[in-house]
Amino acid sequence: MKAVSVSSAAISNAMRYSQTRMQVDLVKAQKELDSGKVADTGLALGARSAQAVNFQRDLDRLNAIVDSNALVAARLKSTQDSLGQIVSATQSLVNALTVAVAGDAPDSVTAKSGSTALQSLATVLNASMNGEYLFAGTNTDVRPLDDYMSPSSPARAAFDAAFLSHFGFAKDDPAAAGITAAGIGTFMSAVVEPQFLGAGWEANWSNATDQTIVSRIALNETTQTSVSANNEGLRKVAMAATLAFEAFSGNLSEEARKAVAQRAQALAGEAVADLGQLQSQTGIIQNRVSDASTRINTQIDLFEKHILDLEGVDPYEAANRVNDLMSHIQTSFALTARIQQLSLLNYL
């Protein structure tokens, strides 16, 4: 028979090693209990871990699109609200011009209506969200519209220069009272219209791009998710408001002012119709974004279910494992403390 010596130090070291292992296992068990998934995917799944990684990658992509769609939806809502404000301001201008055509409004009131519409247009089109201008097209960091009412406005300078070049005198010159309806009509069609509906708009008014923002709202679907200040309806609003302001703040004859009011009224009416159509198109895009997010959320639920089937742990089993390990560790600590108190001196 071979005698084997056993010392308290050997027992203590063995207990210490066992405690270390149990503490490592406790950390893993606690992680599984908190997350509901295995602590080490590769160890638990083996060859199937690649499938779990692919599922997680696709899930991250879908979650990123949903987050992006939330920002897109917020931008579209702000755009709709802004368009509604412009329509309201344009409708007020239409009402003022209707009264002016009938000859029942003071010139100063009609001019004020034009300047108010211009100021509202500049304020709304220069609105920003999250540091990006809503109506700037792809130039989201550039203010899309210059303020016509500013003394340094290039658009205002271009209008005054065009008037002076066409008639030979300024609009506030006494000679302006001799301009006929036909004369002012030719000026509006040949000179003013190109400044708004032609190349003059981008040269003097707008810093926006015709190209709008295109966003991916699903894995296989993209759509335009912004409105440019270069939209024709917005140009018509600017032209109608400018004509109202300029014609009724100068020295034009009553005949010429009435002709301008009629043209501006028609333009503003067309603008309201155009903006209504633009609101409808924006609403359709809003619905597309919402529907895409709903479909993606359904896909996310499926991916999460597949991932849980692969990596999930039984919460009751995980809780029992944590409790057992904690109980064993506490018992081990107690035994280690008792062993460390053993001394031959206690028996002498």
Rank of each mutant, 00 (worst) to 15 (best):
M1W: 09
V6E: 04
S7R: 10
A9N: 07
A10K: 10
A10M: 13
A14W: 13
A14L: 13
R16K: 15
Q23K: 15
Q30G: 05
K31C: 00
L33F: 05
S35L: 01
V38S: 01
V38A: 03
A39N: 11
G46I: 04
A47C: 07
R48C: 02
Q51F: 08
Q51G: 10
R57T: 14
R61L: 12
I65L: 10
S68W: 07
N69G: 08
N69A: 06
A73N: 14
A74L: 10
A74M: 12
L76S: 04
K77V: 04
S78D: 15
Q80W: 04
Q91S: 14
L93I: 05
N95D: 10
G103F: 06
P106W: 08
T110H: 08
T110D: 06
A111G: 12
G114T: 02
Q119V: 12
Q119K: 13
T123F: 05
V124I: 14
V124H: 01
L125Y: 04
N126R: 09
A127L: 07
A127H: 03
S128F: 02
Y133I: 00
Y133G: 00
T138I: 15
F159R: 00
D160G: 07
D160E: 07
A161W: 07
A162W: 01
F167Y: 15
A175S: 15
G178N: 14
G178T: 14
A182N: 13
G185Q: 09
S189N: 11
A190I: 12
A190G: 08
A190S: 15
A190T: 13
E193R: 12
P194F: 01
Q195L: 15
G198C: 10
W201Q: 01
W201T: 00
W205Q: 00
T212Q: 15
V214Y: 13
E221W: 06
Q224D: 15
N231A: 11
V237L: 11
L243G: 00
F248S: 00
L252I: 14
L252G: 01
A261Y: 07
Q265W: 09
A273S: 14
D274S: 11
G276W: 00
Q281E: 13
A292V: 06
A292W: 02
N297C: 09
D301V: 06
L302E: 12
L310R: 09
E311S: 06
G312D: 00
G312H: 04
V313Q: 07
A319I: 06
S332F: 04
A334L: 15
L335M: 13
T336E: 13
A337G: 12
R338H: 09
R338Q: 11
Q340H: 11
L344D: 12
L345D: 12
L348D: 09
